[in-house]
Design a protein around this nucleic acid. Sequence first.
DNA 1: CTGTTAGCGCATTCAT
DNA 2: ATGAATGCGCTAACAG
Lengths: 337, 337
Amino acid sequence: MKKHQITIFDIAKELNISKSTVSRALTGHPNVNEKTRKQILDLAEKWDYQKNMSAISLITNKSNIIGIMVPEFLSSYFPNIVIAAQKEAALAGYTMIISQSNESYETEVLNAKVMLSSQIDGLIVSITKETLNYDHLKVFQRKGIPIVFFNRVCEEMIVPKVIVDDYDGAYKAVQHLIQTGKKRIAHLAGPNSLSISKKRLNGYIDALKDNNIPIDEDLIISYDLSPNKVKIYVTHLLNLPNPPDAIFAINDPAAIEAIQIIKTHGLKIPEDIAIVGFSGDYASALIEPSLTTVAQPVSEIGKVAIKMLIEQINRNVEDWKAVTTMLKTNLIIRNST
Amino acid sequence: MKKHQITIFDIAKELNISKSTVSRALTGHPNVNEKTRKQILDLAEKWDYQKNMSAISLITNKSNIIGIMVPEFLSSYFPNIVIAAQKEAALAGYTMIISQSNESYETEVLNAKVMLSSQIDGLIVSITKETLNYDHLKVFQRKGIPIVFFNRVCEEMIVPKVIVDDYDGAYKAVQHLIQTGKKRIAHLAGPNSLSISKKRLNGYIDALKDNNIPIDEDLIISYDLSPNKVKIYVTHLLNLPNPPDAIFAINDPAAIEAIQIIKTHGLKIPEDIAIVGFSGDYASALIEPSLTTVAQPVSEIGKVAIKMLIEQINRNVEDWKAVTTMLKTNLIIRNST
DNA sequence: CTGTTAGCGCATTCAT
DNA sequence: ATGAATGCGCTAACAG
């Protein structure tokens, strides 16, 4: 209930010197007698003095806190990005507030409010599958708090973004399936609200076109990324009069779920039906058969996003740049194809 | 660089009323004319006014921020606890600062400092495998900031703790192995610094004893949880003149790694050698063969830890209680045994 | 119901 | 090299 905090006042009183001198010593200001400085620092150490960042934040209008908002924490994808981002932020002296929205737009809006009142200096975001309105994010821009998007970006906002070449990744994945002799390739696509869904879908379509394989709308299923929906759609695909001989899934969780379902149907992977995922999650290497997947440079994504954000933070609002960094994916061929 | 913030002053000026009235309206105080209240709230909404929590924190000496420190984010275990904790904290109006220490004591100490200066109201912690000195955590107690440990607890600190019955979980796991006819059961144990290691080891030993199976020290390998060490030790076990017919691993990542290594040796699981893990990670269900594991109620752990913490926060320091909540584990029998 | 005032802990002028 | 004074945005105690 009652927190006890050591303040500059306490130290000043104990040492019988002025608060300003203590403050100066603590902030590394040069104009302090070396002996008094040592005294102050020693006492601060002894008493576990920690600056009250709320006070400093109030004065400087800086919190040294960066916010990160991710849509979910279920696969290894976002946690890994968070780790990398946190590491990079720490190097620059920033703490992070992490929030995950559980794929809920409402939670995302709520989290954004919390971030705002926490006086964060900047924000990196990957939106939920439900997010169609961006007012809760545009507020940050208006207030002079820079935003950087990663992975799931907002097309209409002109801010820095870190993405991977989704189109290219999808194209390569499908190209690979075709090269292994597959002809009826289904695509378990993501919701249209996400740009990554559209880009991966386009990569899929163009790869088929370039190989003179007709697009069969029945083989393209757009779903909302709910884990429990995968079963329905994969089963549907398998029960088609002319079932697919391969599935390119929007992400690894979907692909992994698909593998499990296909196995219960007694089909052989990849002989009867091949699978490719997207992202290179930890679990993709564990599943049997191991999953061929379009690996994303997750650590790099987190790192670059933070770097770009800090650049923005250090720039004046009028000098903000809105560059988009596109990173390359890497097709990892395993036993599911 | 320059953040623009709407303040109570701005609203007061625009509406030509006093700051206190604005403040009252914004805090839901009753003594405000309904019409002026509406005016104020509308303008606040329109201008995206957000309270400056730094200022409030400075006055109330409360931040409404809870800190969570976890040792790693590699398996699904800690992320899932974080999700549950965050959910529970949000219900009570708390934001969370999450830090993961990458199993490094030094990082943990650093993170603790950050937490301290962020004026958190309370902290839930699971320590790193390296943590032997607890001064950086005791500071919180001294400052009147409550701590709750979960999973990897500090024995010597008298604070609330949330743990699972590690001894019982281990005992049941080994008992199960014995029932399937295994006689030479190895244990891939954790470092002695962690109480969970000791408890799981004791459960293992007692289960053997109770079944009149002699303890073979050669079959007990204590390691530091580094992912790359598992291979060395499992290979060592397999090359023993009298190799084990089962392995009980301290956690699922180790068990999963073991399965992969054993498969490369051409041994059959569970016929030649059975495996049991601990925790019930997401990946345990995916690996082939699927892993028998002592599942922990992760969501419950996170939830209970936050609940206990908030109770402490709302208590005066002198009324702090140090209850330990022990949750039950659940042996999930799959194909690795 | 509304306005005035003090002060939270600290950095930062301005004095000395 | 040090001290005193100001104010960051806000709440709460005090006056009307």
